[in-house]
Simulated assay, not measured.
Amino acid sequence: MSDDSEVLTSTQVAERAPRDWREVDGMLRTRLKVKDYAAALDLVNRIAKAADEADHHPDIDLRYNWVGLRLVSHDVGGLSPRDLELAGAISRIAADVGAEAVPEVTTSMTIGIDTADAARIRPFWTALTGHGEAKGDADSLPSPDGQMPEIWFQESEAREGRNRIHLDVYVPHDQAQARVDTVVAAGGRLVTDEFAPSWWVLADADGNEACVCTWQPR
């Protein structure tokens, strides 16, 4: 019997998760495509019933012809066996109604701000965006409702020719290299792959940097 309080490693999640789910930025995610809004709503209702039965509830994004899903066990601070179990149940529901799983399109984004003094600028960003400080983590401002990117502060002195704010785009680990290649083909420049496959640093033609990130270790 699995221990529902166990926090799984990303490697364990990759090995055990249903094939139509991916870990992205610490959450198990997928997207399910259907024919129209009525079908999407019906799928959500079926998933809600299974979630109530499991007493474990995913974040659900209902759109015209797709449903986005995110799973994490907040009480244990990570992904647990019950996330994998509910993901499997949702996959079976999706198969029953003919929904198409497209987990490769799931992404997450954070905004990184380089600063030598996070305490000095943090009040500005909380006032501007409505983000609140994370408990026990002064370097992060989580989204107040899960709809906006997390903001985090990276200790760094100003460097000539480098932007102070950058995007970290989290993608499924099996899509990362393709995303990097697409960015380079679109006029980007690979600044470094020293930290791959955990993250690649890229820049646009003006030198603005961004990172493509995965759960994988360096």
Results as ranks from 00 to 15, higher is better:
residue 193 D to W: 05
residue 126 T to C: 07
residue 160 E to S: 14
residue 127 A to P: 08
residue 209 E to G: 08
residue 28 L to Q: 01
residue 87 A to F: 08
residue 110 T to G: 09
residue 191 V to Y: 01
residue 211 C to G: 13
residue 115 T to Y: 05
residue 124 F to A: 15
residue 112 G to V: 05
residue 104 E to N: 04
residue 23 E to T: 06
residue 115 T to N: 08
residue 175 Q to Y: 01
residue 12 Q to A: 14
residue 159 R to H: 10
residue 151 I to K: 02
residue 39 A to Y: 05
residue 202 L to F: 03
residue 185 A to T: 08
residue 174 D to T: 10
residue 26 G to T: 02
residue 152 W to N: 14
residue 143 S to W: 08
residue 54 A to L: 01
residue 18 P to Y: 03
residue 163 N to F: 00
residue 210 A to H: 10
residue 122 R to I: 06
residue 110 T to D: 15
residue 17 A to Y: 00
residue 40 A to C: 12
residue 160 E to K: 15
residue 201 V to D: 07
residue 141 L to W: 09
residue 133 E to K: 09
residue 115 T to F: 06
residue 19 R to G: 07
residue 73 S to P: 00
residue 61 D to M: 11
residue 54 A to S: 11
residue 68 G to N: 04
residue 56 H to E: 13
residue 206 D to H: 12
residue 203 A to R: 12
residue 118 A to H: 07
residue 106 T to A: 15
residue 154 Q to K: 15
residue 56 H to M: 13
residue 129 T to Q: 09
residue 122 R to Q: 11
residue 24 V to Y: 03
residue 212 V to A: 06
residue 116 A to W: 04
residue 167 L to C: 11
residue 7 V to I: 15
residue 178 A to P: 04
residue 21 W to Q: 03
residue 145 D to K: 08
residue 167 L to A: 15
residue 102 V to F: 03
residue 95 A to H: 13
residue 182 T to C: 04
residue 83 D to T: 04
residue 32 L to H: 02
residue 165 I to Y: 06
residue 167 L to V: 13
residue 135 K to R: 13
residue 180 V to I: 07
residue 190 L to P: 03
residue 135 K to A: 15
